[in-house]
């Protein structure tokens, strides 16, 4: 089997390297514009280029995707946060009409930064909370979007449900300790400088959450 593969290795190698570069078609895959079509999403099934507007629009419902930007020589990792993405809560990814009306005046009160720990990395997002009359509390807004808040009063860190389920199975099946799991997330977030990811607080919260989730699961 390995001997069969050896004759194909060079082909595989050049195919793998060719997807690292920009595609032949330099226009945006959505709107067809060629100017500023320099973004590419590593998580979408579509691997072509996108312009900034289409990239932000495409990711309204995919806030935890990883974006790369073409620098002229290579695709450099960037984040949706850096491209000006705002994570809207309470309206299925769309802006809250009340927050929109009040606009700039209250922008500081209704927006903030939220750290979201997902299965593939730790994200920082500008978040816009729902301010409709009778809007649920901030932890409830997070829970409705399948995000588990790390604290109750004014949550600034949240974990995706997917991550908590994954962590549970990882600890049961692979005996992963919280520290190893956090180190893995650190390396996933920043492959070249994992120590730059501020994860110590997240570890403490994760340990605490683990016991909370367990209590919820066993109905205690």
């Amino acid at each position: 089997m390995m001997r069969d593969w050896q004759s194909h290795r060079d082909n595989f190698l050049s195919e793998i390297l060719s997807v690292e570069g920009p595609p032949q078609d330099k226009s945006c895959g959505n709107c067809g514009r060629t100017e500023q079509a320099i973004y590419r999403c590593s998580d979408c099934f579509y691997s072509g280029l996108l312009c900034l507007d289409c990239c932000l629009k495409d990711h309204i419902r995919h806030p935890f995707h990883h974006i790369k930007v073409w620098t002229g020589q290579y695709f450099s990792p960037t984040t949706l946060h850096r491209l000006g993405y705002i994570l809207h809560l309470g309206h299925g990814g769309l802006p809250c009409p009340i927050s929109g009306e009040q606009g700039e005046r209250d922008s500081k009160a209704s927006k903030g930064t939220l750290i979201v720990v997902d299965i593939r990395s730790i994200h920082s997002h500008s978040v816009s909370w729902c301010r409709c009359p009778g809007a649920p509390s901030r932890p409830a807004q997070l829970l409705r979007m399948h995000l588990y808040p790390a604290s109750i009063q004014s949550p600034r860190t949240a974990f995706t449900f997917q991550l908590l389920e994954y962590y549970h199975l990882d600890s049961v099946e692979c005996n992963t300790t919280p520290l190893s799991f956090c180190n893995k997330l650190r390396r996933l977030t920043n492959k070249y400088n994992p120590d730059a990811v501020p994860v110590s607080a997240i570890l403490l919260v994760l340990l605490n959450l683990d016991s909370q989730e367990h209590r919820i699961d066993i109905g205690n």
Partner: peptide, 23 residues
Amino acid sequence: MRVSQQWENIQAHIWHGYGHDLD
């Protein structure tokens, strides 16, 4: 297991500068 060995080998070629020049 076999696929991961093949992947590691291909990555090693890239990391050590044997990716673009197949000769």
